[in-house]
Structure formats: structure tokens, C-alpha cells
Amino acid sequence: MNIFRLAGDMTHLLSIIVLLLKIQATKSCAGVSLKTQELYAVVFVTRYLDLFYSFISLYNTVMKIIFLLTAFTIIWYMRKHKVVCQTYDKEQDTFRVLFLIVPCFVLALLVNHEMSVTEVLWTFSIYLEAVAILPQLVLLQRTKNVDNLTGNYIFMLGSYRALYLVNWVYRYFTELGYRQWIVWVSGTVQTCVYLDFFYYYVQAWRNNERMKLPG
């Protein structure tokens, strides 16, 4: 564990906490894409199957359980909570997620470390996470309302993987022979997907104004 990876994990955890707080405090999920939340739940389920058969560390196990529990809690709020679910803009959150899931799964079948069920599912989760934010970014473009907390949520969610990129560079130079091409390429694509959002987020922050996305 290095400081970059720890910072990445904490940023990831914080992003989820911010989203949960937004939903619980404001009793509203306006501007939040349920599709992205469901894609992330799929990412966590397919990636953390090893919870059942391999123990890495207490930290690793606890974090995986927290990510799984919070992901399903957010989905429960957006689908079932009587007040919150009325604030979900269903007609705007229409991204065809199958166009993300199917290509990622096919790619996981073609490019992976080993043709086993858990390895293919794990690889699928790596590819899917790279594009899971797309429904959320599309929803922002459509609804234009980037409220502060949702903006912070997306910013931190993008930042965590950028910190992981630094972690991979660090590990490459400090751990002899350490290589993870699949994760590195996917993580780079994932971070690039956020670049446009980062640009407008930082601009709004520097001008100390509410974030607005172009027409």
C-alpha cells in the first residue's frame, strides 16, 4: 500500500459518502443517474467475488464490503425511498447501458489474464468501470443542473482513478516486474472520460461561480 493508492481509496470512499449525504440530507437525487449507480453496483459485484474465497487484508475486505453496501443503499434510496424516488428524473436518465455492458463483456472474453469465470468477470468489471460514469455525464448535459454536491461527487469519483494512475507509476518503479496492462489502459481511459468534466469543474471553481456545462 502506498500513499497514492490510499489517497485514491479514501477519495473514492469520500465521493460515495458525499453522494449518500446529498441524498439523505436533501431527500433528493435530482441530477443523479441511477444507471451509473447500477453500473457501479455491477462493477463491485463482479470485481469483489474474491471476497468469498481469498483474504488479502482486513482493509481490503472492509473496503469492499463498504463499497458494496453503499452502492446498494444508494440504489435502494433512488428506487424505493418514497420521497427520494420521486426526485429521480427517470425520463432524462435514458442512457442505453447495454451498449456499455455488452462490449465490455465481449472485450473481457477476448482480452483477459485467464479464461476462468472469476477472471473474466473481474476483467469485465475493470472495463465497465471505465465507462460507468457516462450515463451520469450525459444526464448532466441534459439537465444542466450540476448542484454542488453532485459536482463534488463526480469530481472525486474521477480523481480517485487519477490517483490510482499515480499509484501504478509508483508501483512500476518500486516493485520489480510489476505490470498490469489491462488495469492501466482501462484506468487511463476512465480518467480521460472525466477530463471534459474536470475542465468545467476547475473553471467554475477558479471563477468561484456555480458550475455550468456548455449548451
Binding site: H12, I56, N60, F67, H113, Y178, Q180, W181
Partner: peptide, 10 residues
């Protein structure tokens, strides 16, 4: 090929 090391990252 990639380090088939244990998946220690989240």
C-alpha cells in the same frame, strides 16, 4: 505478460 499477482487493489 502481466504480473499474475494477487489482486491486492480495490
Amino acid at each position: 505478460d502481466d504480473t499474475k499477482e494477487v489482486k491486492d487493489e480495490l
